[in-house]
Design a protein around this nucleic acid. Structure first.
Lengths: 133, 133
DNA sequence: ATGCCATATCGGAAAATATCGAAATATATA
DNA sequence: TATATATTTCGATATTTTCCGATATGGCAT
């Protein structure tokens, strides 16, 4: 094949970032608002290390940003203004999937489960309502 | 991980279809109009079997359709009406890449098909030994 | 300091994918 | 029919990715 430019490689890397069910689900799960790693792990029933690795790829692709708050790391999708056509397209298609809607509904329940992050456990319902929207 | 639905699998398969430099280039190369397999192989300097395999994946993803004309197979991107948000996003981002514009600028279309095709068929591996992806 | 907790990184075996020549298939033409 | 051509499929190896437990890092509390 004729030489492949860095730009093309970068685009392919972006696509690879969501070429996996877990990473696609994590990205879609984050669209409504930020979540911390343990919430994602609990919602999707997957090892925390897998979530951490998934987020690293999504961050490398420029789809997700992270915010540290003490020992917690909150991840969110980049602002819509900064979203590339590719990212918008992915979110549009993923947002139509029943499974994604179910994940988001589960995530709401996970917030009230005492086993999740103690931050969540101790926060008041009002705090939750604010952080979600 | 909680069970993965067929819908999600299908979306991930679509994304996988372009998670490869050759397949991304082929898809982008086809956007302006249909090309036959040998034209693609010649333009991108890649074995014809690789193009065939790339097109199979793009077809499976629903991004590309094929039209047979005698011994030639012409491939094209699905009509824009039928294009998903994902496909539109991919094409938008890929269409901005200099490399993609260069590929299109080769204007292999101008050459008569038999000339291009026989060139591909007879080229030796050494003729395109430079880059590998 | 010690311990706990959320997260990140590592290791490395198993699974999936890439690669491309060779062989097979299909189609045109003499 | 035979032969040349365009494409697909096969086969085998090489490379990449996935997966998750174990371990490391860093912040917070006592």
């Amino acid at each position: 094949m004729t030489p492949v430019s860095d730009d093309l490689k970068a685009l392919v890397e972006q696509v690879k970032a969501v070429s996996h069910p877990l990473r696609m689900r994590v990205l879609a799960l984050l669209e409504p608002g930020e979540l911390c790693v343990c919430q994602i792990a609990e919602t999707l029933q997957v090892p925390q290390s897998s979530v951490s690795e998934a987020l690293r790829e999504l961050r490398r692709a420029g789809f997700v940003v992270e915010r540290k708050d003490g020992r917690w790391v909150f991840a969110s999708v980049v602002p819509k203004k900064q979203a590339s056509p590719l990212l918008k397209g992915i979110l549009a298609d993923a947002g139509r999937l029943l499974e994604v809607l179910e994940d988001r509904a589960l995530e709401v329940k996970a917030l009230s489960i005492p086993v999740v992050c103690s931050k969540v456990q101790k926060s008041s319902p009002a705090d939750r309502a604010v952080s979600r929207v």
